[in-house]
């Protein structure tokens, strides 16, 4: 018998034994999650892509004819306006979240760790109370004869009630209330990791605090900033219950538009094409994120 043959025989033997020993456990352990991800995540998403190229039939169902009309429809000025406004408000929310969240995250990160944990907990607790109820509170405060207007009237700051509700501004406030914790957490994590000796070195080399902040602190906490941007921008973009609770019907964003296509007017193919657009924007953000993160990986580590 030549040696290579015996080697081959051994290999097949090992293979069958391996099969017996590994396949069954692998199937029971990795099987459920694989099944779940395929059936509940990947296939439905592919189906969304698929029907975005279909037509709507007369009864709100799907007519299986390939068409690009759904994507052409998006280009109508009415919808472009909604998309543009959604992006604008989401961006505004993101920027304000970072501007408010960064100093607070910095404040928390510079506290002793026990106190910092408590302060972070305080940031998270509102997140555990129903978001909608909180939005409703803002709604109540902002009513024409609500608490805020009453207060301003009595203080003599205004002569007639302000139109606080149903504006873009109040929608942004609502988005801020629901998104701020998501900005603060990653910012805190990256600031907390920042080695204090970098700041000392910068100061030692003659940089004033403002310069140190711009040239050392910001660049070194960039991953946290980008993560915060992602965590605020993407949900803000697809959000529909905030405009619904605070904007009445007057502030129409892409999220509400998609929801209406599915739950009200039953134009699923058009709704699908809108959500594909949303996905594309998300993917662009993700791509930017990985680019920055990768840059970071390569050059910092």
């Amino acid at each position: 018998m030549n040696p290579s043959e015996s080697q081959g025989e051994k290999n097949t033997l090992a293979k069958t034994r391996n099969l017996k020993r590994n396949t069954l456990p692998a199937l029971t352990m990795a099987g459920p999650v694989t099944f779940w991800m395929l059936v509940f995540v990947l296939l439905p998403l592919l189906y969304v892509v698929f029907i975005s190229f279909m037509r709507r039939d007369a009864f709100g169902g799907i007519d299986y004819h390939v068409t690009l009309s759904n994507y052409v429809e998006i280009l109508q000025p009415v919808y472009l306006k909604v998309i543009w406004k959604s992006i604008k408000l989401a961006l505004l929310t993101t920027v304000i979240c970072i501007l408010i969240g960064y100093p607070l995250a910095y404040y928390i990160a510079r506290k002793p760790s026990k106190l910092a944990a408590k302060l972070l907990m305080l940031v998270m607790i509102p997140f555990w109370t129903n978001t909608l109820v909180r939005l409703y509170s803002i709604n109540l405060m902002g009513q024409p004869n609500g608490f805020l207007n009453q207060f301003l009237l009595r203080a003599g700051l205004i002569s007639k009630p302000l139109d606080i509700l149903y504006s873009d501004g109040i929608v942004v406030v609502g988005l801020l209330i629901s998104m701020l914790p998501f900005a603060i957490l990653p910012l805190y994590a990256s600031i907390e990791k920042l080695d204090k000796s970098y700041l000392e070195a910068s100061s030692d080399l003659g940089a004033r605090p403002a310069i140190t902040f711009l040239r050392v602190t910001i660049p070194l906490t960039l991953p946290g900033i980008v993560a915060a941007v992602m965590l605020v921008f993407i949900p803000s973009l697809g959000m529909y219950y905030v405009p619904e609770a605070l904007g009445g019907g007057k502030v129409m964003l892409i999220g509400s538009l998609i929801r209406n296509q599915f739950l009200v007017t039953k134009n699923w193919p058009f709704g699908a094409s809108l959500s594909i657009l949303l996905l594309l924007i998300t993917l662009i953000m993700l791509w930017l994120y990985t680019r920055i993160a990768k840059l970071d990986d390569m050059e910092v580590f």
């Binding site: 080695d195 000796s197 070195a201 910068s202 940089a207 070194l220």
Partner: peptide, 27 residues
């Protein structure tokens, strides 16, 4: 610290990781 005419070499070096050697020295 930034007003004092003394400079420090840190135990952990504290070189700015996002800057090149040139930028670090030029800082």
């Amino acid at each position: 610290a930034f007003e004092r005419d003394v400079n420090t070499v840190f135990q952990s070096y504290a070189l700015f990781p996002h800057m090149t050697v040139f930028d670090n020295i030029a800082y």
